[in-house]
Design a protein around this nucleic acid. Sequence first.
DNA 1: ACAATCGTCACTATATTGGTGTCAATTCAA
DNA 2: TTGAATTGACACCAATATAGTGACGATTGT
Lengths: 141, 141
Amino acid sequence: MRSSTHFTIALHVLTLLASHPGEALTSDFIAGSVNTNPVFIRRVLAALRRSRLVTSQTGPGGGWLLTHAARDVTLRDVFRATEEGALFALHSSTPNPKCPVGGNIQDILGRRFEATQRAVERELEQTTIADLVKEVQARSS
Amino acid sequence: MRSSTHFTIALHVLTLLASHPGEALTSDFIAGSVNTNPVFIRRVLAALRRSRLVTSQTGPGGGWLLTHAARDVTLRDVFRATEEGALFALHSSTPNPKCPVGGNIQDILGRRFEATQRAVERELEQTTIADLVKEVQARSS
DNA sequence: ACAATCGTCACTATATTGGTGTCAATTCAA
DNA sequence: TTGAATTGACACCAATATAGTGACGATTGT
């Protein structure tokens, strides 16, 4: 099963930002919580910025901030911002079009996979970043 | 998004087998429909055999056969046989346990991801290999 | 005995992933 | 104005995953 950690890292970082409302966090500080390096963090956050979920500010006192209230950002929003492409890969080389199965299977499976992806997104929609913050607080109190 | 093509290939092959009921198909023939090489096909089918979805037979006239009626095999069964591990990866290195977020986020996200995986499996359960065969026949008639 | 077929291994090429270093650009503050 | 902090954007590397290919022994039907 292939899947990058970007989705997970993004959720971690957004939860961290939401736990420090109004405070710009540096990629260096964030990397300390995630246990990785600042460049990787900036790569993940750059994708979130493209989707307008965060903003960044250079210079001293700079760093990263949420652009929306945590209760308005669902896991689906983050999923779409970080995971590009489909959940399941189709064939790496096109199947034989002369075979009745080979000639139709990609189209048929593609439709099923889209339905599955919609099911995933419906599930992810049920949770917001604010929910994650609440859970962290409940566990660390 | 990472994800091997094994799930897709397995569905293709099972649909092909179900389209030739009672007939043992060789990995060479199957590879011709999938447009790949027989060794790769045997690798994918070996996983399906471990889950008792197919059997194989060596020697002349040998090949691969379904062990169950196509209407009794759901996409979820194939998913479980081919996709090992979770749908979403957690962090590649453990987050900082001294941070309230880092110390709890993996457990919290793990539960959400399990719920998502259950949603995927519920969706995949709705379709059988027999459904795929029917769709192929409807399109190639 | 022969040929067909699977079972499995080794090797390769390619792509992806994450880690690291570097340096220019921006920006705040002394 | 100078200097330091910080992002932005590269390039490069190591490790891993993926799929393609060849090879060869084991099994089995004719």
